[in-house]
Amino acid sequence: MSKSGSQEEYDYLYKIVLIGDSGVGKSNLLSRFTRNEFSLETKSTIGVEFATRTIETQGKVIKAQVWDTAGQERYRAITSAYYRGAVGALLVYDIAKQATYKSVERWLTELRENADRNIEIMLVGNKSDLRHLREVSTDEAKEFSEKHKLSFIETSALDSSNVELAFQNILTQIYQLMSRPSHGPIVTDDPTPTGVSVDWNNNNETATKPSNCSC
């Protein structure tokens, strides 16, 4: 069942999840994108928080439902329930904390096991304003994302850089993916059963995708 917004008109509705380790800035990416707000005092996210924003891309109006999730490992068992119907994921790490980057692979596994296999994934190195504290080089992350066929961007929710672009890009990619003949317009149904092994090499916009969309 699709969850629709009432008042505004839009062509497409996409659900996107924000995942990544605790403290990498997921909540602030969400508030920056949906309300243009940033706070140093954001409380830790418990469960899930939700916000929407409508953007325009390629002449289409797209409403993004963004789900911000808790980062602590204990919550993964719960968090995976929130992946249901997500067509995009921003996998966030903190460029100033190597450990959060190291976790990226585990998060990929997490998505592989719980999300729709066609989910569009973007790797996001947040806190790019902390140049002097950088622990993860741009090149390294770029290389990693190429290897895993993810899109990649560095952002700063604090100074706003690239936040808009990150969401704009992933939404556009999803739109392009969805508007291919093999896909219906919106995927918001339950994901394929867990445990299906996914060939991640297929999971980018240039590769052909199996048409297993569940719409």
Partner: peptide, 19 residues
Amino acid sequence: QDAQFIEFAFRWMNCLLMR
């Protein structure tokens, strides 16, 4: 509306409505 309890009430339980 497909609003799941785990989506809106999880935190109510986890933090005993302190938030």
